[in-house]
């Protein structure tokens, strides 16, 4: 019976965690108790056998999988960071599912068309009808605009060009569209995208801010292609305010000789 009090110390004895006092107490008991001595020795023996047993090493896969998991997790966290960024990214991901969006777009137009037809034939009188029609038209317009803006964020250059080309379908480009186009004109890494953007903006040149933006963009272009294209546009628009930035551009040392000549011609024609 007495032995049970000491059993509590067994695990600590084997583990080497007993205080000197506890050890002393147990040793005292062991001297007089053969049963406990035997029990403890047997436990010590199996404890020693356990020392021989090591768990196997995990395979190298574990590290690879961990890194993949960490990367995926980091991406998902970044997605959540900014809602807006997330939405934009998801939109651009949607674009990569090529067949679906154009289909959705067509379906939306079809639905709106049906709605128009329904309104036209079945409801209300003149003023109300006009009002609803106007609303619908503006909705279509908005839809196109959203599509275009989303396309401009696409990582693929050809998709961005597609986005730019949508602007020809937008009749009244608002500030958001113009800003997006001007940003693309100045910052897009791909020269083809910038060229099509310039083309699209030329069609919108009746907007004062577009003209202003084009003029400001002259000094920002560093590709010879863009520089001569923008000179053509300015000549076409007969924009005299562009002379000053062109003269500034001429001061650049590494300017392409061909472009230099072209700009000089443009300036003489404009003045």
């Amino acid at each position: 019976m007495k032995c049970e009090q000491y059993e509590e110390l067994f695990a600590g004895w084997i583990n080497g965690e007993l205080t000197p006092a506890e050890r002393e107490k147990l040793d005292q008991h062991l001297i007089g108790c053969a049963g406990c001595r035997e029990e403890l020795a047997a436990m010590q023996q199996i404890w020693d056998v356990m020392a021989e047993v090591k768990a196997p090493e995990p395979s190298a896969n574990v590290r690879v999988k961990f890194q993949a998991m960490l990367d995926t997790y980091k991406e998902s966290v970044q997605d959540q960071k900014s809602n807006w960024d997330g939405i934009k990214e998801q939109l651009s991901r949607l674009w990569q599912w090529q067949p679906r969006w154009p289909l959705a777009y067509s379906l939306a137009i079809l639905l709106i068309g049906l709605g128009c037809g329904y309104l036209f034939f079945h409801t209300g009188k003149g003023a109300e009808q006009d009002q609803q029609l106007k609303e619908l038209t503006s909705q279509v317009h908005e839809l196109k605009q959203t599509m275009m803006l989303a396309l401009l964020e696409n990582p693929s250059a050809s998709e961005r060009i597609r986005g730019v080309s949508y602007t020809s379908e937008i009749k009244h480009a608002d500030k958001e569209v113009i800003d997006a186009l001007l940003a693309t004109l100045n910052n897009d890494p791909n020269v083809n995208v910038r060229l099509s953007t310039l083309d699209a903006l030329t069609h919108l040149a009746n907007h004062q801010e577009v003209r202003q933006g084009l003029i400001q963009s002259i000094v920002q272009q560093d590709s010879p292609l863009m520089q001569s294209a923008i000179a053509d546009v300015m000549l076409k628009l007969q924009e005299k305010r562009s002379v000053k930035p062109f003269k500034e551009l001429l001061k650049q040392k590494n300017l392409d000789p061909g472009v230099k000549e072209k700009i000089n011609q443009t300036i003489t024609q404009l003045i």
Partner: peptide
């Protein structure tokens, strides 16, 4: 204390099964 008791019982059981 509960850890010590459980550790002791576990070791005793393991020893009995092993032997």
């Amino acid at each position: 204390v509960a850890v010590k008791t459980r550790a002791h019982r576990a070791l005793r059981e393991l020893k009995n099964i092993y032997i």
